[in-house]
Nucleic acid binder design. Structure first.
Length: 580
RNA sequence: GCGCCCGUAGCUCAGGGGAUUAGAGCAACCGCCUUCUAAGCGGUAGGUCGUUGGUUCGAAUCCAACCGGGCGCGCCA
């Protein structure tokens, strides 16, 4: 249960009874009413803005609504105290028993605690990674992969029907370059000296493996053939080879994509024509000219008439071309078709995770989605800012051209998937991120991964100790929690009770990183409470000669373990049993 | 030139569709510590939330302009 949602319900009920008695006018909009934990815990457990929100429409002073509302709310046995404060806030103090009951919810639900019905089973498509199949995944891709995967998991937990999708850009000029690069390495593998890789082709060492593999499969049969013959073969082989590598890396990172969509297959299926026709039908396509971009006129600018989509009707700055001068579709046209295809597959709700360098593309894609779905579909684009890799504060320089970039595989080999995943989620997606290989594996309080993992391990450790002391750790969901009355314990219980709200808020905002901060705070509170037991043995979890008290405290520890486990599950991070 | 993102404590960052006294970690300073196996623990100090206006009873949060940083800017994907 999300306690705050529960109290909004109570507040609305109280307001309705005030309407029934004529204290409030009939038609009021309750949708802006919030119930949240106040910033300052001294203000109580729940604060609501109800009186202030309704004041205008009810033509009353906030306090004149707040006072009688408070009287009604205090009739709720869960509410032990309350006060009107500031400009008209109502601060409520909620009974300890109410919070203990939330711990009870948690113990029954296990790591399923926090699961929400918010999404009502609505279909959501989360598209992420979607790296070109022209080389290995880099740390930049890793961030998109982790953010997308965690967001998808989060939405799943919040009750949406989520599909995780990867768009393979296997059409267009880049994969032709890939085919040509492969051919060179193929000849090299057969003993030919190929010299420098020409500008524009893919120079990376990894291409040698691709060349060698096709040489092994096909022998010399392509050597004397014209490009038209070998290019499709080389291209298809390389894409297949590199996609397998990418899938392997993703698998190592713990990312399981549900659907891989091929751009080439999409184009060949006629989807682009279909999308084009749909836009034409809506009269959103015309032949016209564009002005060159101001301040940065391309050298090869050539004023010409082209096929344009009326993106400006949907909030974009200029209308966007759909056809290239060679008559082929632009990437944008294909992408419209792809999003149209997603919509046709039932996804009105689409989320794309992109690199920040695609930021200039967001408006036109949103415009296109709005148009092609006749405003029935919605696209949210999360841009992931640059990742820089550091070693002890020192930047590791990367250059794609020089082939010196840190691959995802390097990163995984050095620090492991759990560290990569959690660490990448300790920052908002739209903030640049420095990934320090040393700090990420440090065992200290300022390393959130370690601190949260340690928190989970410590809950397990307490269980092991209890068991060693002869106290059963089974059936904790049934124990009487009334013995939990210490301020620190009650604070922890309240924090556990925040979890369902955190899940819903993070899911609604499409911001998985919030979970990392919540888990860190929860772990910190747990560690702090554990440490109190050093000074005051009476606060320790396992108390000799007090089996009932111990069992109640074990239930609390169990609950903390469940919540951390639940959050780590969203992140795809293994909850460890001990810190070895 | 235009568009998007960002600017919060010395440092790294949360908060960001308004609301009661702006938070954390590190660093600094002051204490404590052979500990329920736990690589430490507790406390203090530190901010005109880039600037200037605006909307509002109320702005770090919304709007505008400006300053500073990043990304992008027809037929690359």
């Amino acid at each position: 249960m999300n306690p705050y949602r529960h109290f909004i319900g109570q507040i609305v009920a109280a307001l309705q009874s005030m309407q029934a008695s004529g204290e409030l006018p009939e038609k009021l909009d309750f949708s802006a009413i919030t119930a949240e934990p106040p910033r300052d815990p001294a203000h109580g457990d729940v604060a609501t803005n109800a009186a202030m929100v309704l004041a205008k429409a009810a033509s009353k002073k906030p306090r004149d609504i707040a006072e009688p509302l408070l009287v009604r709310l205090k009739a709720d046995p869960d509410v032990v105290d309350g006060a009107v404060a500031g400009p008209g806030f109502i601060n409520l103090k909620v009974a300890d028993g109410f919070w203990r009951a939330r711990l009870g919810d948690c113990l029954k639900a296990g790591v399923g605690y926090g699961d929400s019905a918010m999404g009502q089973g609505a279909k959501v498509n989360v598209e992420y990674v979607s790296a070109n199949p022209t080389g290995p995944l880099t740390v930049g891709h890793a961030r998109g992969a982790v953010v997308g995967d965690a967001l998808a998991n989060l939405l799943l937990k919040a009750g949406y029907a989520v599909t995780k999708e990867y768009y393979i850009n296997d059409a267009g000029a880049q994969v032709d370059k890939l085919g040509q690069s492969t051919y060179l390495r193929y000849r090299e593998a057969l003993g030919e000296a190929i010299g420098e890789i020409p500008e524009g082709l893919y120079p990376g060492e990894y291409m040698k493996d691709v060349g060698a593999a096709i040489a092994k499969r096909d022998g010399a049969r392509w050597i004397d053939k014209p490009e038209a013959d070998w290019l499709p073969e080389m291209r298809a082989f390389a894409i297949d080879f590199l996609m397998k590598e990418i899938e392997t890396d993703l698998e190592k990172l713990g990312v399981h994509i549900d659907v891989y969509s091929s751009e080439r297959a999409l184009v060949e299926s006629g989807a682009v024509d279909r999308a084009f026709q749909e836009l034409s039908r809506q009269n959103l396509i015309y032949q016209g000219r564009l002005d060159p971009p101001k301040g940065k006129k391309p050298d090869d600018w050539e004023d010409r008439e082209q096929t344009l989509f009326r993106a400006t009707q949907f909030g974009d700055e200029v209308d966007r071309p759909l056809k290239k001068s060679d008559g082929g579709w632009t990437y944008f046209a294909n992408d419209i078709a792809y999003h149209h295809d997603k919509f046709r597959r039932g996804f009105a709700d689409m989320i794309d995770i992109w690199g920040a360098d695609h930021g200039g593309y967001v408006k036109r894609m949103k415009a296109a989605v709005s148009a092609i779905t006749e405003k029935q579909g919605e696209l949210d684009v999360k841009l992931c800012q640059l990742v820089r890799v550091m070693r002890n504060g020192e930047l590791i320089r990367m250059s794609k051209r020089a082939g010196t970039f840190v691959t995802l595989r390097d990163l995984l080999d050095e620090v492991g998937a759990d560290v990569v995943r959690f660490t990448m989620l300790t920052r908002k997606n739209d903030a640049p991120f420095d990934f320090d290989l040393v700090k990420a594996t440090e065992q200290s309080r300022d390393n959130p991964v370690w601190y949260v993992q340690y928190g989970h391990a410590r809950t397990r450790s307490v269980m092991r100790q209890a068991a060693a002391a002869g106290i059963s750790t089974e059936g904790l969901e049934g124990v009487l929690l009334d013995r939990l009355s210490d301020a620190g314990e009650l604070a922890l219980i309240r924090q556990i009770a925040q979890w369902p709200r955190q899940v819903e808020a993070a899911a609604a905002a499409h911001e998985p990183h919030r979970i990392a901060f919540y888990l860190y705070d929860l772990a910190a509170a747990f560690h702090a409470h554990w440490n109190r037991g050093r000074e005051e043995p009476g606060l320790r979890f396992v108390v000799e000669g007090e089996p009932d008290l111990t069992r109640a405290r074990l239930a609390l520890v169990q609950g903390i373990g469940f919540v951390i486990g639940s959050g780590l599950k969203v992140f795809g991070v293994t909850p460890v049993e001990e810190m070895r």
